[in-house]
Each structure stands twice: as structure tokens, then as C-alpha cells.
Design a binder for these strands. Structure first.
Lengths: 167, 167
DNA sequence: TATTGTTATACTCTATAACTATA
DNA sequence: TATAGTTATAGAGTATAACAATA
């Protein structure tokens, strides 16, 4: 029995799939992190926060950012502080609730994000250049099933983070 | 134009695919990390290192581990030190090269890894329970293309990390 | 000189929990 | 009491670079 067959016998297909999924994500993520660091001296969580805001021009509250980024509130405060210090985002009062604030991109932040998004998009398009359009669609659909199932499991449990997705 | 359509128009399919891929991986990874912490008081990199060794009973050299885990050497030393302190792995001299050493699981480490692998496998099978066998195979195949393309790009560049995969 | 592995350092991200201000 | 956000802390993970020993 060769190695491939042994691996197949000893490990369910789901495990092989998971390892491959993890490898793919790590390979692409590493490229993105490197690009963000080298080209823009920034990090993935910072980029992620700005990307969330770019999709909500009216801004997002801290707890909403925390949910979408799937991290706890204290971390969002920290990353927001960095971006505020660089005048890329700003805290805005929320009418009717003096505890809360909305975070939104400044014009400077919007401009920088557009620059970053352009390069980011290129890195990602390159990363999937090995797939046909049909492959991309099929992969997107299959991962949609995985995501839906994972989110359903989570909601049975405790939390209910949203997704990073555009739509 | 609704949100979905606008997102589609403004962002290439590759970007939407990437965000979904990242979300899926993070959702599953979070479950695995939580399980490893709660059930075994350990971390994903520690589990990953032991998983690499489990597939190579004769042990692996540090630079080989570093390559497979896709992290730099200093980190492997640190994780190895932890596992050595708990007698889960051991450093073995390499005949013919007194600079190098092989790392391998101890019997205690093998036993613990088997316990962890059993639970880990269950978490992963659960995570993909929303997919049919056919879906799993299709997803595995599509991700194979992504991985091959990513690795090819990397080899054009500088490094050449291996994969986390079983076969 | 190059390679193997270690050490030292600094930084980012993270979760947790205590805290404040307001609801 | 509950909620929104902040602060403080501790820990894991990472890359980088300088270093020792050996090839």
C-alpha cells in the first residue's frame, strides 16, 4: 500500500480536505500580509477593519466591527486607536446613545484604502489565476455550503459572528 | 441595483471567493483552537508540529519542520522546547552531522497525539458535515489547483514551503 | 564560507476580565 | 441591571538578526 493509499485509509476525506483548505488559505494570507507590510506598512487586521468601514460609509459601531471581524471588543479599540492616530478613521458620536460611537473612514483613510484595495485585488486575482471562471464559481458555491453549516453550528452554540464577505 | 449586485459589479469574483475562503478557514480554525485549548490545554502550532512528526516516525530535522510548518526556524525551536519540557518529543543526534538533530515523538507524545487526533478528526468531520461526499471530493480537487498555482508562484519567487498535507 | 540550530528581541494580535459611563 | 466601549494584563505567534558550532 503506497503512501497516498495509506493516508486515504487512515484519514477521512474531511481531514484531507481541511489540511488542504488550511494550506491554501495560509499560502494566500502570507502573500497578502507580506504585501500589506512591504507596500503599505500595515497589517491584515488593520486592512480588514478599514475594509469593513469602506462598505459602510456611514460608519460602524464598535460592537458591530467586533462581530464582523470575529474578535473581541478590546482588540477593536486597540486597532481603532492606531488608525485614529494616523487620521485614517475617526470616532463619531451617535445621536441618542452617549455610550456608543460610530467609526468611519476619513477622506485620507478612504484614499489610502482605495490604493491598498487596488493592490490587494491584484494579489488575490493572481492567487486564483490557476482557476477558470467556472472553477471560481464552483469553489465559491461549495464554500458557501461550508460557511452556512459552520455558522449554523455556531448559532446552536454561543456566539454568532457575521462574515467577512462583501455581500 | 441591490447590494449583492453592486458587490458583484465592484469586486471581481476572485475577491469574493477569497473572502469566503478566509471566513470558512477562520470559522473552522477557531473551533479547532478552542477545542485544543479546552480539551488538551495546547495550541494549534504545537498540534501541527506533533502531527508532522506523527507522519515521520523516524523524526524530522529542524529545518524540515520549519519548511513544513511554514514558519522560521527560531519559532520551531521555541515550540520544540515546550514539547521537550513536557516529554512529548525528543531531540536525537544525527549520525554524520553534529550540527543537526532530528525531532521525534516520544511514546508519551504518540499516545497524547493519538488522543488529540481522535477529537480533532471529529471536529473536522463535523465542520464539513454540510457537504456530500461528492462535494468534498470536488472541493478537494479545486483547492488542489489553488495550491498548485500558489506553490508554483512561490517557487518562482524565493522560498519553497511544503504543504501541511498528509499525502 | 555556508549551514544547522539557538538565542535575543520586538512587535502584533488575541482573549479575558475589571472598569466607566450611560441606558 | 444591562449595555457600549475602554483599559490593563498576560500570553501566543511571528519575523528578524546576531550568534555558536560544525561542515
Amino acid at each position: 500500500m503506497d503512501l497516498e493509499a495509506r493516508a486515504h485509509a487512515e484519514h477521512p476525506d474531511a481531514l484531507r480536505l481541511w489540511l488542504r483548505l488550511l494550506t491554501c488559505t495560509q499560502l494566500i494570507e502570507k502573500q497578502v500580509r507580506t504585501g500589506l507590510r512591504e507596500q503599505f506598512d500595515t497589517t491584515l487586521p488593520r486592512f480588514d477593519l478599514m475594509a469593513q468601514l469602506e462598505r459602510s460609509p456611514e460608519g460602524l459601531k464598535m460592537n458591530e466591527l467586533s462581530r464582523r471581524m470575529m474578535v473581541t471588543g478590546g482588540n477593536v479599540t486597540g486597532i481603532t486607536d492606531q488608525l485614529v492616530a494616523e487620521a485614517l478613521v475617526e470616532r463619531v458620536d451617535v445621536a441618542g446613545d452617549r455610550r456608543a460611537c460610530r467609526i468611519r473612514l476619513t477622506p485620507k483613510g478612504k484614499k489610502l484604502f482605495n490604493d491598498m484595495a487596488r493592490d490587494h485585488e491584484r494579489w488575490i486575482v493572481d492567487a486564483f489565476a490557476g482557476l477558470s471562471e467556472r472553477d471560481v464559481a464552483a469553489l465559491h458555491k461549495l464554500l458557501g455550503k461550508v460557511k452556512a453549516h459552520s455558522l449554523a453550528q455556531l448559532q446552536q452554540g454561543q456566539q454568532q459572528p457575521d462574515s467577512l464577505e462583501i455581500s
